[in-house]
Amino acid sequence: MKTAILHLFVLFTSLTLDAQKALSISFVPTIDHASIVLDSNYQYGDISLSISNLKFYISELALFNDDTFVANVGKQHHLFDAGLPTSGLISQEMTEPGAFNNIRFNIGIDSLTHSAGVFEGDLDPIHGMYWSWQSGYIHFKLEGTSPACPTRQNKFQIHVGGYQAPNNTLRKIILPVVTSSTLNIEIALDKIIQRIFGQKIFQMMSPGPTAVALADIFPQIFQIKK
């Protein structure tokens, strides 16, 4: 598993929240720093595209002080769905959170949960985030259309999953944070778009080396928005 620590060159001060305060974290997907609106057209360099579906799992979101665990935030598994604006917001009442200077989460679902049967809520297979023909959650799903896709109806369908070595696509994200009770996390899809259009990966529906290579980009697309 790859671990990426972003902006390590900056020195961060620890921050403390007042007792009883709520912490809220928002996730905002963007292209070229503009927030994504589903089914609207984007011109990105010479690529024009429209995104119809963007879903991914954020799991084990937690606060840390250096390497010391401080507190969990929200549910263990959280489904982000660009079609449901509220799903981008995760908040947590904090009684005595203590000091923290980085937040950590996974994109995807851990292998234990992967083989433990069915669950309710965000893990329910009705969300279309579970492969039916071979066991496994889809960790990250991006779908849309572009005239550049030589596929049926110009569709691209990127389903990143796989939980067993060597095709595990769960990725750990660590973001240093600065003092605030609200954290805004930007998900800059630019690098993903560049990869899929650059390498013409318009259909990806199963675990394997291509999915692994795409998942390796995940740690680079999350950043704290000032």
């Binding site: 083989s115 433990a116 049967g117 069915v118 297979p125 579970y130 023909w133 071979q134 066991s135 496994g136």
Partner: peptide, 10 residues
């Protein structure tokens, strides 16, 4: 291909 009986019916 299926790792748990719960998921088989899908």
């Amino acid at each position: 291909a299926i790792n748990h009986i719960d998921m088989q019916a899908l």
